[in-house]
């Protein structure tokens, strides 16, 4: 697979990352992701998925090899340019990173204020962003009053404040049950349909299998397989997966995300009330 270094691609070119003398996180990864793709980075814990994402956010520098984002080498980007780089992407961290003392609305507003938005812009955009991730009805809740899936949606919403062309999500379904995992995937797919390039690191076999998207399998810091399903259209998969995902989910239309759902009904069919209040439930097997 040769890597076209155009400005329409994200390119990892023989990238190695060494955390210390003996700890290799990546051992020479070459990978090309096109603009508009939806890609899963799949693999056991410790195989280097997070490190791959961190190369793009420039939390980690490559020990050798090159990382190109839309044709621009970012491995050697000076530290002072990193904030600007991060404003070109949405980052959804594994642990949500919500401010516990701020409400849902304030959490997103705070991040917007931090990147220089005025109060006016915040008032205009936050409700819109919250709607996009289906959490508008919980705008006044504190994070601890939300289920894990809802917290994850807030974290995704916050990642959208820069209108990023690229969204990076690290184990977004790590702590969620299948129903909530599906909600998150729906949101990510919807963003992808609107043109956002989405890269998801996960070890959740079930999510990956049902999504039928490109899967980059990693093992020991190397890419061991890279499979793109080409025979089925994304729309068809969506419908198929939606139907078969969870029998208790209400049936979805073509574009389930575009359809505003009444909050009560939305939460209603999920019978896991205790778990809703407890985001710390261990990940399902």
């Amino acid at each position: 697979m040769s890597a076209p270094l155009t400005q329409d691609n994200i390119v990892f070119d023989k990238v190695e990352v060494k955390y210390s003398e003996y700890v290799y996180a990546l051992r020479g990864v070459s990978l090309t992701i096109a603009r508009g793709e939806f890609v899963f980075l799949m693999g056991q814990t410790g195989t280097g998925k997070s490190t791959l994402l961190k190369l793009l956010t420039r939390e980690v520098k490559p020990t050798s090899g090159r990382v190109l984002l839309w044709g621009r080498e970012i491995g050697g980007l000076p530290e002072r340019d990193v904030p600007a780089l991060r404003r070109e992407m949405g980052i959804v961290p594994q642990d949500f990173a919500l401010l516990p003392r701020k409400r849902v609305y304030e959490n997103v507003a705070y991040a917007m204020r931090a990147i220089g938005a005025t109060r006016r812009e915040v008032r205009r955009r936050v409700p819109e962003i919250l709607e996009r991730v289906h959490i508008g009805h919980r705008a006044d809740a504190f994070p601890h009053q939300l289920s894990g899936g809802e917290q994850q949606r807030v974290a995704i919403g916050r990642a959208l404040i820069n209108n990023p062309p690229l969204l990076l999500a690290d184990e977004p379904t790590g702590n969620l049950d299948p129903a909530h995992s599906w909600e998150i995937m729906e949101i990510l797919m919807e963003l992808n349909r609107r043109g956002t390039t989405v890269i998801v690191a996960t070890h959740d076999q079930m999510v990956v299998e049902r999504m039928s998207k490109r899967v980059v399998n990693m093992q020991g810091g190397l890419v061991v397989s890279d499979v793109t399903p080409s025979d089925v259209s994304a729309e068809a998969i969506t419908q198929h997966v939606t139907a078969g995902w969870d029998d208790e989910e209400p049936a979805h239309e073509d574009h389930p995300i575009l359809e505003p759902e009444p909050p009560e009904e939305f939460e209603g069919p999920i019978p896991l009330d205790e778990e809703d209040l407890e985001p710390e439930v261990p990940p399902h097997a």
Binding site: V82, R86, I91, A97, L99, A114, I115, R158
Partner: peptide, 17 residues
Amino acid sequence: WREVRIMELVGASRSTI
């Protein structure tokens, strides 16, 4: 650290932090 981390995540400038 939470606030600082979020600001870093969303690309707030160093001076804002």
